[in-house]
Design a protein around this nucleic acid. Structure first.
Lengths: 262, 262
DNA sequence: GAGGCAAACTCGTATAGACGAGTAGGTGGG
DNA sequence: CCCACCTACTCGTCTATACGAGTTTGCCTC
């Protein structure tokens, strides 16, 4: 019984100077790109590939690890290797902090996810007073202590992002900002009530491979980078009133910005 | 001669249920994080690690491939495995397309790089008329043919980004936009001269692992993702006049945006 | 029918060995 | 002195084998 879909995979070229495991990876990648294996499909098992190509198992595993590194496939112990399904993408629009969005009683994340028909969750909420790192301190104008609000966001049970907000302690201590639930409109609404009318935000975006703790926290598959976003909120007096440090699963997000042409 | 810096690496814990190659990867990662191996430093060779830990070479290689996947190290055939040096980062500010920046005779990339003291280059320039992909066509409002301007950007000899601009053919054909050098201020300046006063840009940002051709074009090390940026330029009449599709080496960029709080 | 168990499958970890290919340094000859 | 070559060292590729651990299936027992 030919378990490998006929025609899906070809033969090796012994005359090629391309390494065997690369040739196999190329053929599998090609088959995936061409849709011969669809999203979520199971690839032929290692044993089947060993028999099909007449190579050793380590060579096949090497090929598969190439595809894993590219984020094309995920392996599941005891089950098989599967074409990585693309999760639904969350689109972050650049107007997501517009004042008009701060009316609702829930956080922006919850409101937006509900609207998109997904089931949002926030967990591992932690609120602490601490000494800021050098970088955070600089961005906030050098406070000696800050209030840190950490939380993780999930969409339909899948962790997609975790974030920490830092606020100068003199500004946040004893206010609703230091409460687990800061109330309608979130901490930005509270900041404005405290007299810090927000003027603008600055966001810095980087992308990189996740550290091991980020892999755990976001349950990231192999070959999925993270987007690291650092946002600083400024009030109308030019003071940095909050820095939010966010790490997102890159396969779950598209960031959208609108820039003036002036 | 103890070739491994004394104290840099510990011993394995045989009672741990953590895989040996993960323990070795952990120790190496830890040593790198703690600065016991600095950027650009050579790690102990595979043979040295084999002797230090008393494991087989494949196990050591497995550990090293974990670190490669995390983008922490790069291996060089015949030389060794090195802590990946962080290249200088190019910061893209959100006002980089402001009209006032279009005065100079050179492209924004060249001007900015010169200012930063690096040596910029643009190569593999290609200008073609072609049928747009479905996605590009949609973004441009459905033209049947477009002008595509492809180019690659290098900084100090290192490729950092390649980009393709798409413009509706009826708008660009026969204009300086279809020339290799569109003149001072680039194609945005030409578009405005043609009566398409620019109103705003929309940018979409994704991050993912590179496809093999992107690895080649950008000479990417293992464990370096790409940032995929798609920018659409709109004129004051709301027409999309250009779509620019850019793939950047993620380790060479920080994107910065400014958002109004209104 | 329900439960438990075993078999057969999957991928994960690890060993030992072989040869190839790129690099660097030293040695010798011209 | 310089070049050519050789050697030793590096990582790259590949084989063959073994056992472990998670999953699925189906049979067998109760």
């Amino acid at each position: 019984m030919p378990v490998i879909p006929s025609g899906a995979l070809g033969a090796l070229d012994p005359t090629s100077d391309r390494a065997v495991f690369r040739q196999i990876a190329d053929q599998l990648r090609d088959a995936i790109d061409k849709g011969r294996f669809a999203e979520g499909d199971k690839l032929p098992s290692e044993t089947e590939l060993v028999e099909h190509y007449g190579v050793s198992r380590m060579t096949v595993r090497n090929s598969l690890s190439v595809l894993q590194g590219e984020g094309l496939v995920v392996s599941e112990h005891g089950k098989g290797v599967f074409v990585r399904p693309r999760p639904p993408v969350r689109r972050l629009a650049s107007d997501r902090f517009a004042r008009r969005h701060r009316e609702q009683g829930k956080s922006a994340f919850i409101v937006e996810a509900d609207a998109a028909g997904s089931h949002p969750q926030v967990d591992s909420l932690e609120i602490k007073e601490e000494r800021p790192s050098q970088d955070i301190a600089t961005r906030l104008g050098g406070p000696r202590r800050v209030l840190a609000r950490r939380r993780r966001y999930l969409l339909d049970g899948r962790p997609v992002e975790f974030a920490t907000s830092y606020l100068p302690l003199d500004l946040a201590r004893g206010t609703p900002i230091a409460e687990p639930n800061p109330g309608p409109g979130g901490i930005y609404a509270r900041l404005e009530e405290l007299g810090h009318r927000l003027d603008h935000f600055e966001e810095e975006i980087r992308a990189r491979m996740p550290a091991p703790n980020e892999v755990r926290t976001l349950r990231l598959a192999a070959g999925v980078p993270v987007i690291h976003l650092i946002r600083t909120a400024y009030d109308t007096e030019g003071r940095a009133v909050e820095v939010c440090d966010t790490v997102m699963a890159a396969d779950a997000y598209v960031l959208a910005y609108q820039l003036p042409a002036t």
